[in-house]
Design a protein around this nucleic acid. Structure first.
Lengths: 168, 168
DNA sequence: GCAAGACAGTTGTCTTGACGTTTATTGTTT
DNA sequence: AAACAATAAACGTCAAGACAACTGTCTTGC
């Protein structure tokens, strides 16, 4: 079936991987896992999760306007199937408010409160420092190339409709 | 504080990212999430999770010998804090066996059964096809470069003691 | 040889993620 | 206008991940 595809079938790589594609994916997984561990540790000191932070950051980008729940969910970096409960917690802490506009009571508009805005602003420097710790050892050229390759890697698997923060 | 670091402080990138490092990490997250979705879908048809598959794959690499639980856990691609329960499920399905060697009853040796070996062998082609679908659109040169950059990105954050399958 | 400490797994508990179902609201059809 | 389908969000449930505390097993020092 793939005798013709010399690319992934080259017998030179004998050792641990069935294919170059597998090697790349496992490296992606491992690297994500290691870097996420650093981020998790940073966020745990702030009492907020990475998902929650990204939610607040996204809401800040339209502040003081709001955003419907589903739009918010589709624009997050990683898909979150239970937006409702994630927003519940942030609302309980007074970081955002929800309300149903009378002209279309199906949607729920989510807006950052001044307290939420203040918190996400306060976290910025810690987040930047964390990213610096994660990847600061790489040269600028490598970072740019890595970003490009990662975008190219997922490009065929993006819904063309829902573009997230990281898409151009 | 970082007026001197012209690298991440360059004002040219205004739009969405505080720094190049952040852009790379968010791209890493997003790309991992998208590619993992494909893998999850493939595995859901096999009634086994990616973590479980990697556990079996790792055990195959030493078959017919076994491996202590903790060593197994530290060599997985992503850390799994509840090895016990993960192994419980695989043992219940008859894919592996555990036993405590009398000379050191603290450790638990985990070994693949012939059934487990057969299953992981059967899954190989589906897994390879999935990785091909994930990343087959990239050229070999890009894939090699991506693997190199990913390794370099996590390198300072690896325990030098516990090297996983994806480390050289 | 016995108590203190280290080590390897296990168990309990709480939080998230995943996935299907339900409710409320609106638009459409007849 | 009533019935029907669609959409948006909420809810219920179950499995996975995270974290802490605990049990059983060596090892070491007195």
């Amino acid at each position: 079936m793939n005798a013709a595809s010399s690319k992934s079938g080259s017998a030179k790589r004998g050792r641990k991987f069935d294919s170059l594609e597998q090697e790349v994916f496992l490296n992606l997984w491992r690297t994500y896992d290691r870097l996420k561990a650093l981020e998790d540790e940073m966020f745990s000191q702030s009492g907020i999760s990475a998902q929650q932070y990204n939610t607040l950051r996204l809401l800040r980008s339209v502040y003081p306007a709001g955003m419907p729940t589903l739009v918010l969910g589709s624009r997050l970096i990683s898909r979150a199937p239970d937006m409702t409960r994630l927003l519940d917690k942030l609302e309980q802490r007074g970081l955002l408010v929800r309300h149903r506009p009378p002209e279309n009571r199906r949607v729920v508009e989510v807006r950052l409160t001044p307290e939420g805005l203040q918190l996400v602003n306060k976290l910025d420097s810690a987040v930047r420092k964390c990213h610096e710790q994660q990847l600061g050892h790489l040269e600028e050229k490598s970072l740019q190339q890595l970003a490009l390759l990662l975008k190219a890697a997922r490009q065929p698997h993006e819904d063309s409709e829902n573009l997230s923060l990281v898409d151009q």
